[in-house]
Design a binder for these strands. Structure first.
Lengths: 166, 166
DNA sequence: GTCGCTGCAAAGTCTTTGCAGAGAG
DNA sequence: CTCTCTGCAAAGACTTTGCAGCGAC
């Protein structure tokens, strides 16, 4: 089995394209393109992270101190973006949802329980098996999500160092 | 690729065993074995479903109308059981967590977005790929979860019928 | 101008916590 | 007996909603 089927961190679309698509989408539903919606999308795009609504709101406040964007607007916009499949939400063990742009190539998540870092990957063999399984059951697959939880390399090394110190 | 590697609904342990393990676990941490904890575990075992704390609480009230078990106790016990890896929680798109006994063989989930039904499955090929991926990154896998969302066979058929009627 | 959008604050959910009495060991 | 658990109600966290004024088109 070759490793070439695994791709990490594959970003495939450009912001301008995303923005245009978003505008088209809004127009189609008779919705308005507001500065708040633009900033939320842009911030989500620039932050290559998985953000909670709260974190996204704080980030926006930091980057645009003169603008006042309410947390309610963040929630409303994220709901809109999720409905439109522009972003995807990821639910975690503890509490809260995290959002990420969903327009990139579909991918799964490796989550470090120590430092919270999330690594994305795509694996063809897994995707194929998913299709095989759903096909066998006559199940129509619309989406899927996979998370692997554990300890990343860095944190393992950090632990070793700490143990030696003691 | 053979289909024999897929196993659906594999239940592997008995309640008596589970109960003994739970008692041992409690003793080890100087915790007490109470009727509430027993009923919560038992109800979770007998219900072969994925339950929210709320649903579990209601089910207990229905099955044991003379007992008064507070919702707070359900939350506290589920947290305890999750910490001890007796149950696993599953987070959903919308809101809330669902719990299931985690002592069965590890499995993934097929979730119907139409009727909410959850089917469990295990696929060796996917498990192998997961190991391969984490190994390549030096990531220590502790757990993983996979959900496939879509429309189950029954609901697809139901939809077709409804469309014909109109 | 119209009608959707926003910020604010208030209202909902869902979950956790403090406390005094009950009960397991 | 001791010390943890429990139920209750109150507090908290997170999210949604109502509303009046604002702003995109």
């Amino acid at each position: 089995m070759s490793n070439t089927t695994i791709n990490f961190q594959d970003r495939t679309i450009e912001y301008q394209q995303l923005l245009e698509d978003f505008k088209t989408l809004l127009k189609k539903s008779n919705l308005k393109f507001t500065i708040q919606r633009e900033i939320i999308l842009e911030t989500l795009y620039n932050s290559n992270e998985h953000l909670t609504p709260e974190a996204l709101h704080q980030l926006i406040q930091k980057q645009h101190p003169n603008l006042k964007i309410g947390i309610a607007t963040v929630y409303r916009t994220l709901a809109l973006l999720e409905e439109s499949n522009v972003v995807t939400s990821l639910s975690f063990g503890a509490q809260g949802k995290k959002y990420e742009l969903g327009a990139k190539e579909h991918h799964d998540h490796l989550i470090c329980l120590e430092c919270g870092q999330i690594t994305e990957f795509v694996d063809e063999a897994i995707e194929k098996r998913q299709h095989a399984i759903t096909h066998e059951l006559g199940f129509k697959m619309l989406d899927h999500s996979m998370q692997i939880y554990g300890i990343c390399k860095k944190c393992q090394e950090k632990k070793l160092t700490t143990e030696k110190e003691n």
